[in-house]
């Protein structure tokens, strides 16, 4: 602290010891950090004030300072364990205003609104929130998954068929214990469903694309389609184009509860595949008179 101690205390150079004490007292009353807890500015100000007072209240030091033999630095008072450090900590409870209790009564008074809204009698326990990622097919067909709780316990979660991402399952009574004899809370499990390699889901229907070869498309064929409930043979009619959609009734999300089963929508894609010499030779001498595949672009 290198500032002029006379200025800090607001006294003249020739001020008497009494004037200096009186000036210090006035400033200390205002800036003492124990009277201004949490106020950094007061703390800084008081450091300067007490440093200035320590220097000017000591006749010998004051004379040396006046003669320019010492400066004001180093005059700061060594910090002591202050009241506010204790009073702000748990030890301060010893001098709590409310008869030295744990401050509970005061606290309820202060936040009366919160405490009044808290039910007094038996209360249902808090709900617990979990999230669970399931595979696409588990979401479609349903499954039972066991989750491990933070406390080491386990919970069997029955995922009903047709569960979608964002659905929340409620397991009654699997949350926190009730209070005052109330029922336990629930476990709320938010489900996330992973994407599938080839199925997409819209509501209760599934959609997929199925590639067919040139020969299958032109001549027709029976092809095997994997559905969530197992393989199904599907007839590709002769002369099938890319983009042809077919519906396998009841092969989407299976029926459960009041919901009927959804369908599996199959979109056929014709793929040429490796073209051998025979195909090339055949196509070389082959025409489709009057057919323009880009007719629609005109």
């Amino acid at each position: 602290m290198a500032d002029d101690p006379y200025k800090i205390l607001g006294v003249k150079k020739e001020a008497s010891a009494d004037e200096i004490r009186s000036a210090y007292r006035k400033l200390a009353k205002k800036h003492h950090p124990d009277l201004n807890p949490g106020n950094k500015q007061a703390e800084e100000d008081f450091k300067a004030i007490s440093g200035a007072y320590d220097l000017l209240s000591d006749t010998e030091k004051r004379a040396k300072y006046d003669r320019g033999e010492i400066d004001a630095s180093g005059a700061e008072r060594a910090p002591q364990q202050s009241w506010r450090q204790y009073a702000d900590a748990a030890q301060g409870e010893r001098y709590a205003y409310s008869t030295g209790g744990a401050g509970g009564a005061d606290f309820e008074d202060l936040f009366a609104n919160i405490f009044n809204q808290r039910p007094r009698g038996p209360a249902k326990g808090h709900d617990r929130h979990y999230s669970l990622e399931v595979t696409f097919l588990e979401g479609v067909s349903g499954a039972t998954r066991r989750i491990t709780l933070p406390d080491g316990g386990t919970l069997d979660v029955k995922i009903p068929p047709g569960t979608e991402g964002g659905d929340t399952l409620r397991l009654r009574g699997k949350g926190d214990a009730g209070m005052g004899g109330g029922p336990p809370g629930d476990a709320l499990i938010e489900i996330h469903v992973a994407a599938h390699k080839f199925y997409r889901r819209i509501g209760r229907n599934l959609h997929m694309e199925v590639p067919v070869s040139l020969k299958e498309a032109v001549l027709g064929a029976k092809v095997t389609i994997p559905t969530p409930a197992g393989d199904v043979a599907m007839t590709v009619r002769p002369g099938t184009e890319t983009g042809t959609e077919m519906r396998l009734r009841g092969r989407g999300v299976p029926a459960h509860g009041k919901h009927a089963a959804g369908d599996l929508h199959v979109k056929l894609n014709v793929v040429v595949g490796p073209a051998d010499e025979a195909l090339k030779t055949f196509l070389d001498g082959w025409e489709q008179p009057g057919f323009n595949p880009r007719e629609g672009l005109k």
Binding site: A28, W83, Y86, Q91, G92, Y95
Partner: peptide
Amino acid sequence: FDEVDVARIRLIHTLRHEME
């Protein structure tokens, strides 16, 4: 006295004698 009591005594001493 505990340390908290010593801080309390210092506080009261300051209030009584420094601030009069």
